Every structure is written in C-alpha cells, then in structure tokens.
Computed example of a mutant assay.
Amino acid sequence: MSWLYVAAIVALLAPAAALAQTYDTPQTLAVVISPPFYTYVDAEGHAVATGMVHNESDAAYVGNVVVQARFYGESTPLPLGTVTAGTLLEVIPPGGSSPFVVRSAEPDPRIKSAVASLQMFDPSNPKIPGLAIERLADGRLQVYDTVGAPHTNITVHIAYHDAFDPPRILGTSTHHMGDVGIGGSLNLTVPGEHPAGARGAAAFVESDAFSSGIVSWRIGAAPSAPPLPAQILDAWMDDHMGERTSVVAAHQNVTLNAAVHVPDGEGRYWLYVQVSSKESGGVVLLERIGVDGAASVPWTPTHTGEYIAEMFLWGETGAPASRPAPILLLTVE
C-alpha cells in the first residue's frame, strides 16, 4: 500500500539519504537537509517549503534545529522573504530524521521557488524509547507508558502527506497533552480537518525524556498514487557538444534539459529551472519557460564549485503540477 510510504516522509527513526547542505561540529555531529524538498502554495496563498532534516551522527542526538527558507520570485536574485522554523521533532535521534515546514510570512503570488538552509543545531540529551502510540478503532490516538516511569510534557506530532511517490509533506500539527504517571495513558482526538490533498498521516510522541515509535494511517479512499496529468519524465545537462554530463568547465556553455509530459487540453505549463550553489545556497540561475514536451535552458557557469539544479513544473493555477524532477548535482571545474 503506497500510503505506507509515510515512513519515507517522516522517517523519524530510519536513516535517510542526504544530498544537500551538511553542517559538522567539533563534537562530530553531522546534520543535513535531505531530499525530497518541495515548495508549493497552500490554500491561503502562502508559499510553503517542506523537507527533511537528517541526523547522520552514529551516536549523538541533535536538538534546537533551525531551518531558514528564502523565497524567490521568477528572476530577482534577492529573496522576497526569509522565514525560519524548527523541525517537527525537538530531538532527532542518531540516524533519524524529522520533517520541517516553513511558510512564507504573507501570501505572495510572486514567489515561485524556495531555498532551505540549516541555521543552527545543538547536541541534545537522548530521548530513549519509553512511550507507545496506537490508533484506536474510533480514530483517537492513545499514548501510554511502556517503561514504568512518569512522563512530563507529552507532545504528539502528526505529519500529513499526499499520494505522490515519494510522498510530499502537506502539513504538520503538534499537540501538547501534559503529563502521565507510571503505567498511565492519555487519548488524543485527532482533528478532523487536514491539509487539502492529504492521503495519509503519521504520528510520533515524545516527552521530556522519552520517545515512541511511529503509527500511520490512510486518509480518504485512495490507496495508491493517482495518475499525474503532467509530469517531468527526465532531467539532465548537456555540454557544448550536446553530450550528457554532470561535470563542465567554467565559462563553458551548457544546457539544462527536461523531457515533460503534458496532456492535450490541459492548459499551459511552465518549467522553472533553478541552479544554486551547494556550498552557500545562493541562486545563480532562475528561469521560467513554457513547455509542451521538451525544454532547454542555456547556462554559462562562471565560478568553480558544486551546484544543485532543480526543475519544477507549474500549471495555470500557480501551483505545482507534479513532483519535481530528480535533483541534479553538477560540478564546475
């Protein structure tokens, strides 16, 4: 069942592949923002950036994580807004991950993309398994002690996702439930409202000293991803000879290409191509072009280094029409 891919979204206790910005500390902590990373417009018109923060450390717990999202328009090199937010989990265990959701301060139709970066994180005391969470037949969540210890400041986190593969986080909620004694339990009535398009959810609970496993469930009747009316089939870079490559020389003319499936009669679609420095996160190229099957954007890199190229397909509604293309990691020598 595809809704079980929620483990790939929340991945609260499972390792995740990392491809983005990495920060190391003298205490050998290694924390990254790992794919999938998405930017979309919510029902109120705010731009929303969602993704995962992964703790690559083998033994260290990480807390106080702060993620910054810079929101950009079509062609301006300066961000239209900058917002910071924390991760869903207060403490990320070794090899574990936590979602983050950063929402623009105001609705702004000019926003077309976002770049996320880690601002800070600290070593944290461990939160060992000591709580359990289950979903009851009536839809409530039950939290209970499993180690014969009292628990303070019990907090339930819920992440909602869509039916894409891999899934996209559409929103999160946090519920503070108070304390529970030895052998005690608490019940939470899950809010009936959830983000539009949500097809599944996952919940996790933590207290001041303990944590739990994950419980997940379906929302709606869609057990699998629906067919996409439009999608990016392939993305790649060609060198000046027209050959596929991921390594080019500085000042060499290249093209960033995408093969796009656009059904007839579905209106216009635009491909957004963004190239940013892997080291600094700064955007060096941002282009929008209309597409009807294939698209190419020229680029002449001027500085050496590693770059991340991302491509997004948007429709006439001003919202993403499909999941983004696979991220391209490019090297300029």
Rank of each mutant, 00 (worst) to 15 (best):
E106K: 06
P93T: 04
G290Q: 09
R103C: 02
A116T: 15
D239E: 03
V32E: 13
T50D: 04
S75K: 10
G178E: 13
N253H: 12
L328M: 15
T304E: 08
G86P: 06
I92P: 01
R168W: 00
A11K: 03
F100G: 03
P324G: 02
L170H: 06
P77K: 02
A202F: 01
P123E: 03
P35L: 00
H161S: 13
A196C: 01
Y40K: 06
M120Y: 12
H175I: 09
V10Y: 02
T50K: 02
S75L: 05
D208R: 06
S75W: 02
F37D: 01
P227R: 13
Q252A: 11
A16H: 14
P99V: 08
A198S: 14
T87N: 01
G293Q: 04
H303A: 09
L80M: 15
G95Q: 12
N125R: 13
A225K: 14
Y269D: 04
Q252H: 10
P191R: 04
G63H: 04
R70I: 01
K127M: 05
S277G: 04
Y272C: 03
I154T: 15
Q274V: 05
V65L: 05
V32F: 04
A149M: 10
P301Q: 00
D145E: 00
S2W: 02
T152I: 01
T189M: 01
V53S: 02
S276E: 04
A250R: 14
G265A: 07
F100R: 01
P227Q: 14
E266H: 14
V6M: 01
M177Q: 13
A60H: 12
H251T: 14
V262Q: 10
P99R: 01
G63P: 11
G281M: 06
I92V: 14
G200M: 12
G293L: 05
W314F: 11
H303F: 00
A250C: 07
L88A: 07
P126N: 08
D234M: 07
V291K: 12
I111L: 12
D138R: 05
A201D: 05
T39N: 08
H251N: 15
V6N: 01
A132H: 00
A202M: 06
A309L: 00
A11E: 01
D24R: 15
I232F: 14
D264L: 08
T174N: 06
Q142K: 13
S97N: 12
A249S: 14
P129D: 03
E90C: 00
A250N: 08
